[in-house]
Design a protein around this nucleic acid. Structure first.
Length: 889
RNA sequence: GCGGACGUGGCGGAACUGGUAGACGCAAGGGACUUAAAAUCCCUCGGGCUUUGCCCGUGCGGGUUCGAUCCCCGCCGUCCGCACCA
């Protein structure tokens, strides 16, 4: 055994009867190449550069403390794209930052007496180190955290600009108030009517809050979805539903004077089905409708009912089981087409004040809720729409309403019309009628989308740059006084917002009158921070929020990658933000993200002991396979239950840490494994076997290259177009073509399969390389170079090591993607499958350019075809050029 | 309830625009090398049968087609989103 020390390499060669190669050692190799890239400043992106731009971005992480395996899958995908596009000649922007404001930092402060700032920046440092181990080609010179004063300073500028443009308002609204933590809770943080953290029963409070007027763009946000053709259809659909556009009619109903409260003369409803107006049998208004409040003034029973609705009102679980309930106010309205026809007004628990006008007319035959309600209170059910072909004389509605399209009945002048025509007819007639000098009805478009409330009663967020003055009202902080900086000296001894009880922070002079005034102590929703960070990355050190030119050059983000959980809020808010920023002159852009990709999660089995404890994978030993497969707790020797695949989470302990994997197998193995097998938009199951398999492949590539090295190091690359070496050049060029296409489509799993195939195909022709002639060596050299480039986006460290091994002095990460030779992609002879009656019975090898007649003739001459035809002529022969032949016997 | 997606070997998945079903990997079984282990290499790997070959097979039942994992109709199942939105 001879040990050979190589120049520029810390690895050894070992010689045992021929040549075997020392295993590739990622632990030594990876940090070295990371350092080489950093020293060459390869991934620092200049803003001014002649090359075409490409902006690839992964949703930035919240600095919770450790990188999660899910992060690494996400960032690896982006990195493959970034490295590929760079090799294709693009000036690639691939930045990273931190979504650093938010509750967990404050929770940590309360529990562990750590300052949120300190906690956050420590976490960032730890996670930055974790990310750097992954060998991601990120431009770290553009890094920022949203809690950097530099960043939130600019966010405050944006807030003031939006305010100036009329896109910010202050209004009171109902919020979920946690009386123990003394803070507003998001709907997601209310579980069964209780605060998720405190467990206290959540109260509904009216609070003055700051809002972004996202509804100003409802129509545009909806319409522009059609243009986002590089977004998943699912996400576009979710946004469409969320915005929830509907076209209908608002109708004003006159109250019967003697039943109405003083000074109220009408009730306005909204409906998308004005065609059903003759099926109306009652009116229903929300519990917090002004008319309900008025009616309750002299009616304690009604007041109690309203109070009950309010209490049950909010939680989703309550709604599911809540029975339709109503209370007759004794107020009556007149039907707009028949003043003699009066209907009772009920306060109903299923009508929402937030949508439409907070009042409806109930048409039991056409709406299941209305039908349930009518059946409960014995109200009339008049069918007004029936399916086409049904008999008007016998058509009835009893337990199930009919809400589809159809033909009108029991509707006077509408009878016999389609419901569409009836809609138009009712609208036309009522638009002409007047009540108190105004039209009775108006066509109206309604949206489900609400304005975005951004006030949070918390410390660790971007302060809202506003001042409250007794004399002048709400006054914006003058821009020259920005930033409004968070004070560092705070305490979390008591619940509530520490900014509120800080001894001095909130006291300021009014910028207008100079009198004593009060700072706004609410901070912004952290979704604001993440709504424009992608724009800030284009000029992270600019004085203004953006450098408009740089923003316009880079944006929109060409490929955005992140989790489906952000399908609505984050993506919708960002879409609003670019519109608002455009209005304020910060960029000229229609949409923030041209391409969107939602990646799947990394999941792992769960293990649970008999006593209910969750066990981590490292605490468990697995035995057997298939039915016999069992998990044993190492510490106790007891068998534990193997549970379902779930997203890795701390609570179920089914986590695998990226650091551990990197330390044992290296980053390349982790990167390769996470993108192999499962398509990137689906979940991938982390298994030790899978990771080991990926590592085997790392070693296999290394071995193939290292063993070819002596024969190819001094050769210059050249494809073979004839002779035996074609067996080397053809697969290499075919793989080159298809892997590139797969990466463009983000089909990483398929690209990886193609690389596997190439390595399999090169194995045999490479075995005799040491005896091969010059042209074979040249072809092998070229194939190795191609292989290295194909592997490089996925396993960049291995690629560099291989490159150096065949004598390369440059960095692969800075190299160009090779071009394939079209001649080597096509074969002269092709193998056509031959079917008889649609079933494959054999093959035909024939010249690629053979015409149909030649193919048919050759097919009919085949033994098995003649046998099948048994002397008779075929009924039909179908030749699909270069695909298949089907003989119909 | 409304909307959407999906269903292929033991497993993850591949199969372009209707044209060879099961690429590639994992697991499993057998063998080679080794004192042994690891590593590596070779073979088998959807089911069945009367095994030079034939039949069945992409959730189930139909249909269109020379030909269907792919298109159409009807079921079944799983997952996701929204949910009293008038």
């Amino acid at each position: 055994m001879v040990k050979v020390r190589r120049k520029n390499s810390r690895f050894y060669l070992r010689e045992i009867s021929g040549m075997a190669t020392e295993r590739y050692n990622p632990r030594a190799s990876e940090p070295r190449w990371q350092k080489a890239w950093e020293e060459a400043r390869l991934f620092e992106t200049p803003n001014d550069d002649g090359r075409p731009t490409y902006y690839v971005l992964e949703m930035f992480p919240y600095p919770s403390g450790r990188i999660h395996i899910g992060h690494t899958r996400n960032y690896t995908m982006g990195d493959v794209v970034a490295r590929y596009k760079r090799a294709k000649g693009f000036n690639v922007l691939h930045p990273m930052g931190w979504d650093a404001f938010g509750m967990p930092a404050e929770n940590a402060a309360m529990q562990n007496k750590v300052h949120p700032k300190e906690w956050t920046y420590q976490n960032i440092a730890a996670m930055r180190a974790g990310l750097k181990m992954m060998g991601l080609s990120l431009d770290w010179s553009r890094e920022f955290a949203t809690c950097d004063v530099d960043y939130y300073h600019r966010q405050q500028m944006l807030f003031l600009d939006f305010h100036e443009k009329g896109l910010v308002t202050r209004k009171t609204s109902k919020v979920n108030w946690d009386p123990v933590d003394q803070t507003v809770l998001a709907n997601e943080q209310v579980i069964d009517g209780r605060g998720w953290r405190s467990g206290a029963e959540v109260e509904s409070r009216e609070l003055a809050q700051w809002f972004f007027k996202i509804t100003d763009y409802s129509e545009d946000l909806l319409k522009a979805l059609d243009g986002l053709d590089e977004w998943p259809e699912k996400v576009r659909l979710m946004q469409r539903n969320w915005i929830g556009r509907s076209e209908g009619l608002s109708i004003r109903w006159a109250l019967v004077e003697e039943t109405a409260p003083e000074s109220v003369r009408e009730l306005e409803t909204y409906t998308t089905r004005p065609d059903t107006i003759f099926g109306a049998s009652f009116m229903a208004i929300a519990a917090d409708h002004p008319l309900a409040k008025k009616a309750a003034e002299g009616n304690p029973e009604l007041a109690a009912f309203i109070e009950e609705c309010r209490r049950i009102g909010t939680s989703a679980a309550a709604l599911e089981t809540a029975e339709k309930k109503g209370f007759d106010t004794d107020i009556k309205v007149r039907h707009p087409f028949d003043p003699e026809w009066t209907l009772s007004v009920y306060v109903a628990n299923f009508v929402l004040m937030e949508y439409g006008t907070g009042a409806i007319f109930g048409c039991p035959s056409g709406d299941q809720r209305d039908l349930d309600f009518a059946n409960k209170y014995g109200l009339p059910v008049i069918p007004v729409v029936m399916p086409e072909g049904a008999d008007a004389a016998t058509f009835q509605i009893t337990e199930e309403s009919y809400s589809d399209d159809g033909v009108m009945l029991n509707s006077r002048f509408l009878d016999g019309m389609t419901n569409d025509a009836a809609f138009k007819e009712v609208a036309k007639r009522l638009e002409k009628e007047t009540l108190d000098g105004r039209p009775v009805a108006e066509r109206k478009v309604n949206f489900r989308l609400r304005d975005w409330g951004v006030s949070r009663q918390r410390y660790w967020g971007c302060p809202i740059p506003m001042i409250h003055c007794e004399a002048c009202g709400v006054v914006p902080v003058p821009k020259e006084d920005l930033p409004v900086q968070l004070p560092d000296d705070i305490d979390f001894d008591r619940p509530g917002n520490p900014l509120d009880r800080h001894p001095s922070w909130r006291h300021v002079k009014c910028p207008e009158c100079g009198a004593d005034a009060r700072r706004e102590t609410d901070t912004m929703d952290t979704f604001v921070d993440s709504s424009w960070y992608f724009a800030r990355f284009t000029s992270p050190h600019a004085d203004a929020p953006t450098d408009r030119e740089a923003a316009n050059r880079w944006l929109p983000v060409d490929q955005y990658i992140g989790g489906i959980e952000h399908a609505i809020l984050h993506l919708l808010y960002s879409r609003f933000f670019v519109r608002a920023m455009r209005a304020a002159g910060h960029l000229d852009l229609d949409e923030p993200f041209k391409g969107l990709f939602t990646q799947g999660m990394v999941v792992h089995e769960t293990y649970r002991a008999a006593d209910g404890r969750w066990l981590a994978p490292v605490e468990v030993r697995l035995e057997g396979t298939g039915e016999e497969r069992r998990a044993i707790e190492i510490a106790t020797g007891e068998e534990v239950t193997i549970g379902s695949l779930e997203k890795m989470s701390k609570s179920k302990k089914n986590t695998v840490s990226p650091e551990e994997i990197t330390e044992s197998f290296g980053a390349d193995t982790a990167r390769w494994f996470m993108l192999s097998d499962s398509p990137p938009d689906r979940d991938v199951e982390w298994t030790d076997e899978g990771a080991a398999g990926a590592h085997r492949f790392v070693q296999r590539v290394w071995r193939l290259v290292a063993e070819a090295a002596p024969a190819v190091t001094d050769a210059s690359p050249r494809a073979a177009k004839s002779g035996e070496a074609v067996a080397i050049s053809k697969p290499a060029h075919k793989a080159l073509k298809v892997v590139g296409e797969d990466i463009e489509r983000l089909a990483f799993n398929r690209a990886i399969a193609r690389v596997h195939e190439l390595v399999n195909e090169l194995q045999a022709p490479f075995s005799g390389l040491d005896k091969a002639d010059g042209s074979a060596r040249a072809a092998a050299r070229e194939a190795v170079e191609i292989l290295i480039h194909l592997v490089a986006p996925f396993m960049p460290h291995l690629a560099e090591e291989c490159w150096a091994r065949i004598g390369g002095h440059s960095l692969v990460a800075a190299g160009a993607w090779p071009d394939y030779d079209a001649d080597l992609i096509v074969d002269n002879d092709i193998v056509l499958p031959v079917q008889i009656n649609g079933k494959k019975r054999g093959d035909l090898t024939i010249a690629r350019d053979a015409d149909q007649a030649a193919v048919e003739k050759a097919v009919l001459g085949l033994d098995f075809v003649q046998k099948a035809l048994n002397g008779a002529p075929p009924r039909k022969v179908i030749v699909v050029p270069q695909r298949i032949v089907n003989v119909v016997a």
